[in-house]
């Protein structure tokens, strides 16, 4: 029996669209780059700008490792097209420390041992910075709920909550 496993509707696409020239503001710097229409903000950061601190854990908005701040709000960069963020203010994990001094939440993550392998950490920290700015979480339960979009397979959750509480107290 022959089973046709064609993965795509190949042949329908005559040519691949041209790349688009865009300017992004990343960590207070304007950067120009050429991207495909389907280049995600995540891929633009990691592959085009070599800002690999933002992580790819699922590429589908299911893990939160790619969390960055866009205009001050935490979002999943894997489900965001780079072309749609022209002119937006993007802050990644690389942009949190100032003059070599860690952001209070970065320091709190070290103090509270809020990570192990480190792969979800950038997303957790950006998400935590976003959470503190939102001002909607005060209790541990509220932090747990509003940090549930960031999966940590190493299981550092209680320490992540402790780190956020530490940073909230100090800011």
């Amino acid at each position: 029996m022959t089973h046709s496993g064609t993965v795509s509707r190949a042949g329908r696409i005559a040519s691949v669209p041209e790349k688009i020239s865009i300017t992004l503001r990343v960590n207070d710097k304007a950067v120009k780059l050429q991207v495909a229409p389907w280049t995600t903000l995540l891929d633009a950061l990691r592959d085009h700008l070599d800002l690999t601190g933002t992580k790819k854990g699922c590429d589908h908005g299911q893990c939160g490792a790619c969390t960055v701040l866009v205009d001050g709000r935490r979002i999943n960069s894997c489900l965001t097209l780079a072309v749609m963020k022209e002119g937006a203010e993007i802050i990644t994990i690389e942009g949190l420390a100032r003059d070599g001094v860690l952001h209070p939440l970065q320091q709190a993550f070290i103090d509270q041992d809020a990570f192990q392998c480190g792969y979800c950490t950038s997303g957790q920290i950006c998400s935590g910075v976003g959470l503190i700015a939102e001002g909607k979480a005060r209790t541990p339960n509220e932090i747990r709920e509003l940090m549930s979009g960031n999966i940590c397979r190493c299981g550092a959750y209680p320490n992540i909550v402790a780190a956020i509480l530490q940073a909230m107290e100090r800011s």
Partner: peptide
Amino acid sequence: DWEAARVAASMVKVEYQK
């Protein structure tokens, strides 16, 4: 680049003898 590789990957046609 990754974007081109991903696009091309979905244009590879495979037929199987199950």
